[in-house]
Design a protein around this nucleic acid. Structure first.
Length: 291
DNA sequence: AACCTTCCCTGATGGC
DNA sequence: TGCCATCAGGGAAGGT
């Protein structure tokens, strides 16, 4: 479950490695994740240079010379980079070693591969295929035409208390559900929602009308802190998430509530509880986070 | 309009 | 040991 800190970790590492590289070839496999005709993708990418990588919420934005390549990792998406030291190794394109054929089966879950002219490879792997890949013409204004429903971007100038409070007006859903809504604050997922609510000492099932203003302010303040901490540790690896070098993150060792059902709260030793909200496992300390 | 539920997808896990 | 049900959840779509 890559959330903002995981996508940002990938963005930073990849930006260093692939910025300026020119694409030699692109190969697509699982049609479902492509939001455009894969043949168009395979035809459009070769020859283009990677200008830079950006991020909006959980979306990774690859800025090319003539297009925007936008990648969402969904639940189990992985984006990894490998440079085959020197050897030209054409046989190792995953497309040429499909399952059932003789020879090395690289990985049936790799759905998209970019090979650069210097021989480096970028792989998109996604077991559950919840990920999505978009290709937009550079003329498209991303903020006005693509990210139209996207909420406040943490760490940006638009992340201000007045806007944060304004987006809560006339709403009365459970606070956890609000945090999962990408139209509120962009980039928060199940793990960091639970962690932020713990830091803000708010029970996840509280409806908005029962959340006091000082609590909302506290939530506004802890969200960037919680996300920043996740980035500092290179993201949270519970199952599938890996950094772009294939290594695990380390933030899972620093979680306060997520995945800690039955374990003692780090503040008060009360066992952490788990309930289901919005069809999502939800973890909290019943003593620190009162209803 | 706001809110909630269902569905997609596959591997890991637990009960019998 | 093998089989089947259940669980994990981001976000679109559908329902109230």
């Amino acid at each position: 479950m890559p959330e903002l800190p995981e996508v940002e970790t990938i963005r930073r590492m990849l930006n260093e490695r692939i910025r300026g590289k020119r694409i030699d070839r692109a190969v697509c496999r699982a049609v479902k994740i492509f939001q455009i005709d894969p043949r168009v993708l395979e035809k459009s990418l070769p020859g283009q240079k990677i200008r830079r990588l950006d991020r909006r919420g959980k979306f990774l934005i690859v800025r090319l010379e003539g297009h925007w390549l936008i990648i969402h990792l969904g639940m189990t998406g992985q984006l990894t980079y490998r440079h085959r030291s020197g050897r030209t190794d054409k046989a190792r394109l995953f497309h040429e070693t499909a399952p059932g054929k003789r020879g090395t089966i690289l990985d049936e879950h790799i759905h998209f591969q970019i090979r650069f002219q210097d021989g480096a490879d970028l792989f998109f792997r996604d077991v559950r295929k919840f990920g999505k890949i978009y290709l937009l013409d550079k003329k498209v204004s991303l903020q006005k035409e693509f990210f139209t429903q996207m909420g406040l971007e943490p760490f940006s100038a638009e992340y201000r208390l007045d806007a944060f409070l304004e987006k809560m007006k006339n709403r009365n859903l459970r606070i956890k559900s609000l945090l999962l809504d990408q139209g509120f604050v962009a980039g928060i997922g199940n793990i960091y929602a639970d962690e932020a609510l713990f830091e803000a000492r708010i029970h996840p099932a509280r409806r908005l009308r029962y959340v006091r203003k000082y609590e909302k302010i506290r939530l506004f303040e802890v969200i960037p802190e919680v996300l920043e901490k996740g980035i500092t540790f290179g993201g949270t690896t519970l199952r599938d998430y890996v950094k772009s070098d294939g290594e695990q993150g380390a933030h899972q060792h620093h979680l306060n509530v997520y995945g800690r059902r039955g374990e003692p709260c780090r503040l008060c030793s009360t066992p952490i509880e788990k309930i289901v909200l919005s069809q999502r496992g939800t973890h909290y300390c019943p003593s620190c986070q009162k209803r």
